[in-house]
Simulated assay, not measured.
Amino acid sequence: MRAYEDWVIEAEARGVKISQVVCQNQMEELEQSEQALFQRMSKNLRVMRESVEAGLSGERRSLSGLVGGDAAKVEARWKKGESLTGGLMSSAIARALAVAEVNACMGKIVAAPTAGSCGVLPAVLLTVEKALEVVEHDLVLALFTAAGLGMIIAERASVSGAESGCQAEIGSAAAMAAAAAVELAGGSPSQTADAAAIAMKSMLGLVCDPVAGLVEVPCVKRNATGASIALVAAEMALSGVKSAIPIDEVIDTMGLIGKQMPCALKETAQGGLAVTPTGRRIQADFL
C-alpha cells in the first residue's frame, strides 16, 4: 500500500516537488509520456476554469430550486470591498460555491476527488494562482500533487460519501487542495503533508446527510467551508506548524471512522440534516 510519506522522503532526497514524484510514478504505472499526462491534466484545469466561470454568472438554478446564485452573491460582496474575511478567502468561497452549483445544475465539472466535493480544489488553486501570479505550468503540476494524494486516500481509506461519509469527500478534497496550495506557495514536500493532515483532521467524522438525497444541501456550502479549511491548513503549514499525526495515519483514521459510522449517516438521507423537520419537508415537496 502506498504512503504519502514515502513520496515526501523521495521528493526531499531528490530535491524535487511532490508533483514531480507523482508524475514520474504515473508515467511508469500508466506507461504514458510526461507530455500526454500534462495534456490530460491541463484539460482538467481548463474544465475547472470553465465551471468556475459558469457558476459565478449566477444564472444557473438546480432542478429542485434549492441551489443557484449564491456564488455570485459572495463574489459581488467582496468585489464591493465589503468582505469580512478578505478578498482571498472570499474569492475562494465564491469559486467553491460556483463549481458546486454547476455540479448541482448538471453542468460539467471535474470530480476532485468526487462530484460532491468538486468545488474545493479548483477554488483553492485558482485563488492562489491569482494571489501569487502562478504560471500555468506550475498550476498543472500542483494538480498532480493533489491527484497523488487523492490516489493514496482512495487506496488507504475511501473518497466515497456512501462508504465513509462526507469526511471522505470534502475532507479528502480539502487535504488535496491544502497540499497543492503549499506547493504553489513554495513550501517543502513535508509541508504539503502537514497541510493535508491538518485539513483532513479538521473534518474527521463529517457525515454525509444530503437533504432529499440530492447533492445540494448541505453539500454545496460544504465545498466553501472545505476550501476555507484548506487555505487555513496551508497557511499554518507554510508557517512551520506541523501535524502531530502524520498524514498517512490521519488517512487511515478517516477510513476507520468511516467503517464505524452508521449507514444512516453515509449518503442514505436517513440521518443528520436530511431528517430534520425542514429536511423532511423539502423531500416531500420535491417528491
Rank of each mutant, 00 (worst) to 15 (best):
44 N>V: 06
116 G>E: 03
221 K>H: 00
167 Q>F: 03
111 A>S: 14
224 A>C: 00
203 M>Q: 12
91 S>W: 00
71 A>K: 01
218 P>T: 04
177 A>Y: 08
78 W>D: 01
139 L>D: 05
78 W>H: 12
63 L>F: 09
158 S>H: 03
134 V>A: 00
209 D>S: 01
103 N>H: 10
51 S>V: 01
44 N>I: 11
155 E>M: 10
78 W>Q: 01
232 V>S: 14
82 E>I: 02
234 A>R: 04
286 F>S: 03
104 A>N: 02
82 E>G: 03
151 M>P: 03
277 P>M: 07
192 T>H: 05
267 E>K: 04
21 V>S: 00
158 S>C: 00
130 K>I: 05
28 E>I: 12
209 D>N: 05
89 M>F: 13
84 L>K: 13
78 W>A: 01
222 R>E: 05
282 I>V: 15
179 A>P: 05
229 I>K: 10
37 L>M: 09
271 G>T: 02
180 A>R: 13
146 A>I: 00
280 R>D: 05
175 A>F: 08
130 K>S: 15
18 I>W: 09
283 Q>D: 09
245 I>P: 03
249 E>I: 08
24 Q>T: 14
11 A>W: 10
245 I>A: 05
8 V>L: 07
212 A>W: 08
254 M>I: 07
271 G>R: 08
97 L>I: 01
278 T>L: 13
230 A>F: 11
280 R>M: 13
203 M>D: 02
76 A>S: 12
79 K>L: 11
153 I>H: 09
6 D>A: 14
187 G>Q: 04
